[in-house]
């Protein structure tokens, strides 16, 4: 599949990248050169550090030494990663590897799970979001979320979108609110389909429409970062294409983190991709590079469909 020439070029870039930026991972780097990585055992996985380029020059969010436990079961181990500004970061990995868990750390949605404990640093705008002084309400207004299963409120389409702006006091009057609703629905590519029935229940829409409604609802609060957990898993190819176009368009203004099981999708929409395995962040890289020339055996196994 991958030509030798191609591989070598990527390898050079990969090393250069490390030399420039990362001292930590450089130490462990030799262990991951393609020649020695053909046999990575489970115990190896536990001790290894992330390969690739987990850090970027101007990050929007920086995550350091993030560990997550459910009771005494550890779901995320020592994850270090930057989320680049106005970029789409895709998170891939086999089921149960902790993608959703990590995603939900980024806007503290895990707070709703009583047994879940998070430690480490996740810094947004110079502040650790897990700091005691941080209020989750403005945080979640800044870091919006779209869930795997469409979950519109059992209210009208209009109210679904208007709810966020209303509770945050983002609008002063009805006309402004109408504008926000129209803007958000247009952005989500749903306006033309629903403009004549805004007063009908959001739950009466089709699955794909509901998911776009949820995206519009997230946009309506004007977040700076949008987290999407498998937003297209319930959608048909046409709706998926709409959502992907939307993600591409949103990238100009927003920073997006998307979890997906669909590698073509990750390749299509993201600039960077992170591969998780059993709670560890195995590899992060420029999407094209990661898919064409993965540095880690596990990543390669996963993207070539050997497991996962």
């Amino acid at each position: 599949m991958i030509t030798a020439e191609h591989t070598s070029i990527n390898k050079v870039q990969y090393f250069n990248g490390l030399n420039e930026k990362e001292q930590d991972t450089q130490d462990t780097m030799p262990a991951f050169t393609p020649t020695t990585s053909s046999l990575v055992t489970e115990s190896n996985v536990m001790t290894q550090e992330t390969v690739g380029k987990p850090f970027v020059k101007s990050p929007r969010m920086t995550c350091r030494e993030v560990n997550v436990w459910y009771d005494d079961k550890q779901a995320i181990m020592d994850v270090n990663i930057d989320i680049g500004k106005n970029q789409v970061l895709a998170m891939i990995g086999p089921s149960g590897c902790g993608k959703s868990t990590f995603l939900r750390c980024l806007n503290r949605m895990n707070d709703t799970v009583p047994i879940c404990r998070v430690d480490g640093e996740i810094i947004l705008d110079g502040l650790d979001i897990y700091d005691k002084k941080i209020d989750v309400v403005p945080l979640r207004a800044k870091v919006g979320m779209v869930f795997q299963k469409p979950n519109p409120f059992p209210k009208s389409i209009y109210d679904n979108i208007a709810y966020g702006p209303k509770i945050h006091g983002l609008v002063n009057n009805q006309t402004e609110l109408d504008e926000v609703v129209e803007y958000s629905l247009t952005k989500a590519g749903l306006w033309d389909e629903v403009k004549d029935r805004l007063d009908q229940p959001g739950t009466g829409l089709s699955g794909g429409q509901q998911q776009r409604l949820c995206i519009a609802r997230a946009i309506a609060v004007r977040p700076e970062i949008i987290l999407m957990d498998e937003p297209c898993s319930a959608l048909d190819p046409i709706a998926t294409a709409t959502v992907e176009d939307l993600i591409d368009e949103l990238r100009e203004q927003y920073t997006i983190v998307i979890v997906t099981h669909n590698m073509q999708q990750a390749a299509r929409v993201s600039q960077r991709t992170a591969y998780f395995h059993l709670g560890k962040l195995i590899e992060v890289g420029i999407t094209d590079q990661l898919f064409t020339n993965p540095s880690h055996q596990l990543t390669e196994d996963y993207i070539t469909g050997r497991f996962g």
Binding site: V137, A141, G144, F147, N151, H168, R217, A218, A220, V221
Partner: peptide, 12 residues
């Protein structure tokens, strides 16, 4: 999911 939806848009 309704609770998550509301919390997700920043409702207290």
């Amino acid at each position: 999911s309704i609770r998550e939806a509301a919390l997700g848009v920043g409702a207290s």
